[in-house]
Design a protein around this nucleic acid. Sequence first.
DNA 1: CTGAAAGCGCTAACAC
DNA 2: GTGTTAGCGCTTTCAG
Lengths: 336, 336
Amino acid sequence: MSDRKGKANLEDIARQAGVSKMTVSRVLRGGTGFSDDTRDRVMATARQLGYVPNRLAAAFGSDAASTLVGMCVPRLTSGLFGHVLDGVDRALSRLGYQVMIGANNHSTEEEEAWVRQVISWRPAGVILSGRSHSPGTVDLLRNAGMPVVEIWDLTTSPIDMSVGFSHHDCGAEIGQFLLRRGRRRAGYVGALARADVMGQSRLDGFQAALSGGGHPLVGKEVLSDTPGFYAGYYGLETLLARNLHLDVVYFHNDEMAIGGLAYCQARGIRVPEDLGIVGWGGMEAASVLPKRLTTTVVPTTAIGKAAAEALVARLRGEPGADVTVIPTRLVPGETA
Amino acid sequence: MSDRKGKANLEDIARQAGVSKMTVSRVLRGGTGFSDDTRDRVMATARQLGYVPNRLAAAFGSDAASTLVGMCVPRLTSGLFGHVLDGVDRALSRLGYQVMIGANNHSTEEEEAWVRQVISWRPAGVILSGRSHSPGTVDLLRNAGMPVVEIWDLTTSPIDMSVGFSHHDCGAEIGQFLLRRGRRRAGYVGALARADVMGQSRLDGFQAALSGGGHPLVGKEVLSDTPGFYAGYYGLETLLARNLHLDVVYFHNDEMAIGGLAYCQARGIRVPEDLGIVGWGGMEAASVLPKRLTTTVVPTTAIGKAAAEALVARLRGEPGADVTVIPTRLVPGETA
DNA sequence: CTGAAAGCGCTAACAC
DNA sequence: GTGTTAGCGCTTTCAG
């Protein structure tokens, strides 16, 4: 059916359909400037030849035809970011874009390495997670002159655009909530201290609110481990072993909080009577527990969708805000 | 610093360093055939100009220089596939490849649409999830002449290569296990009946084993919903409402099983005394429950890693098996 | 409505 | 050790 390398190109179609490459190109891209007859003939020939367009050539030759979008998340195994990725991918793929992923593992160096790779593919734009990046990353992106969306942790001075919410405010809101509920001796269990800037922001906000209310954080335990169920379980065990008479514990996220709940159940600690348990993130599991987890629900998919839309709007030259706030929602639950 | 469009290219570096484009290309790719002095000069100039290579041009011009790999999963929000993706990405990014993602939402049509897009970028290879694909997908991939790895559900006649395990065997193994434990009236709770071929395979294996043992499946409830906690909770409620006197229920996955456990706890149903609960997948949460969930643990990351390695081995012309079995592990747990 | 020419930035092949 | 030539497949521009 076709020639060299078993791959037909525009010229093959052109020859066989008796038109020029240019006409084929126009037809295939659904443009205008050809007769119905020509279109039908070209389409038929393309199908017959099993033509597969070469977007490498298209993107290369046209400088503005790239439909690649890079998206970097902290960890690919994070349930929350899976939903963000889903929101991004659904919005983008529907518009004909392709998503290149990357994980920075909470390291700005790894992020920079990823950015360096990804921009060499001349993507239409890039989505980053978080607001702290290496100077090299910022440089690279500024010079690349493509839309950049920083998601998750809002920043008022984005590289280009920002979509998300304030982690600091999440922590503060929970702090105030707990004080209102009469909690006086709060603890914190986290993970990945050095690495996770955003978890740290929540803790900062939490502490600020507690101190502001006159009942500062009593104790904290931060493991250097994946912030999952295990870490929550053992982190709470360690923290409680210090006998600080805590009446509530704020966890890095819902998974850890559920681990904490499991520990309480195993030890006969009554929740919320003996100890309050608070999570963050809003994973689905948290809402079918025997007692609904007190937590902050993050609209993950909406953030992904909004980020994708902001990116595309910029690409199309449509007006759009540089900073988009996607509010989180405190769910009182029954565990604190 | 540089010229038109603020982007330096090989020629800019060549001119400023007083060598030819070709020499610059050789230096930048870490090849051979230049003096130390030349190398230093070129490198310095490249850095000074803020040179960002154009892989679009490289991949386009060399036909064998693509480092793009496409990876399609059923759902981006699946915890298990998040880990698979992580395994793939870690293995691949370390070797300089970039991953383009896609989700097929359990639809072979959506998968075909994705394949059509992705191969137009002339990737080095493609990783698909599952073994059932549309004829169009198979055609496209066969003609593309690039390595293809089908993961998750093993097939002995892959398009090219297959890495995973047998879902049918997973179900059968659980069926036999339950019979040995004296269970006689088993039920099943699943989700996405039509769409999820692999879940169906597990159910098939499960039923075959039960029937083979003389105690066929008593009842099943399959929701058209996301296979998550909610669906598990309400699915079990619905199934039990039929008063079939079940003594054990096999769930589509761990999330649903945990939803089922939550239902039992809410209703005072004792597990495993009154009812056995069995999951599938091996999510982390399952192992910190008050009672460890009886389930099948799937080595997700290992599958991703093996798939990536098989793909790269093929690209390098290294010998490798077409079919790689990554065994799952039945965890007896305490819920059945 | 259609076509011809030029060129995107890089690498392969070959010459020196 | 280094340079020259050609060309990857497409789109842009400009002519008709």
